[in-house]
Amino acid sequence: MFNQMALIAFYTILRKEIYRILVIWPQTLLPSAVTMCLYFVIFGNLIGSRIGEMEGYPYITYILPGLVMMAVITNAYGNVVSSFFSAKFQHYIEEMLTAPVPHNVILLGYVIGGVVRGLLVGLIVIFISLFFTHLHLHSLLVTAAVFVLTSSLFAIAGFINAIYARNFDDISIIPTFVLTPLTYLGGVFYSIDMLPSFWQWVSLINPILYMINAFRFGILGVSDISIWLAFSLIIIFNLAFYSYALYLLKQGTGLRS
């Protein structure tokens, strides 16, 4: 009986999240489309034409996977952190806390909501890229798997951020001061082979590097690092973050006094 109840509750949360994404599309879907258009025009066409090829591909084609990942990461994270924090801030999270909704269902509902936004924005960016370059697809399976696993990882991270957040500043600190630098330094615009060996080693500490390279492998078939290592790390991070988020939810951290 509770399984069916949980399924309906999950469907309700997911439906609410998707409705939110679609209703406020100028805030959720449009910004990345505009930003990525600028990246394609400036870095891809104007500057990229002078850079030439990288790893055997035109520069604009080389940076495409990184730009898609950047949009996916930012949007999956941003969706959950803002949606869950709003629920906390306006206290309507109490609707779920007083109901018999299992913690797993609450977490999954929000995370998959974040994944949906990540995927929608990713697809929009890929669609825009078609106006600037030819899309290669080396492996659909790898591309789709990295797409989903990366957006779920950052959706979970956004959930954890929202649980700890006490005000709106707290939900913008991590994206601004952690996510953006890590993404830019994660090999979106360059191959780490171009860096001195010390900075190559430093780059390997950056988890986003593995996601961008795995995604690049899926699309172009080239990567700075082992695809299996990348997948292993992404899965381990997913499991660790999910378990921690679930633990916080069960403890009622930031939710129950």
């Binding site: 309906i8 109901a99 909704v101």
Partner: peptide, 14 residues
Amino acid sequence: HIVMNQAGYYGVPR
């Protein structure tokens, strides 16, 4: 939506 979603959290079909 507020009323219907609340019912949904309790497993009430749409």
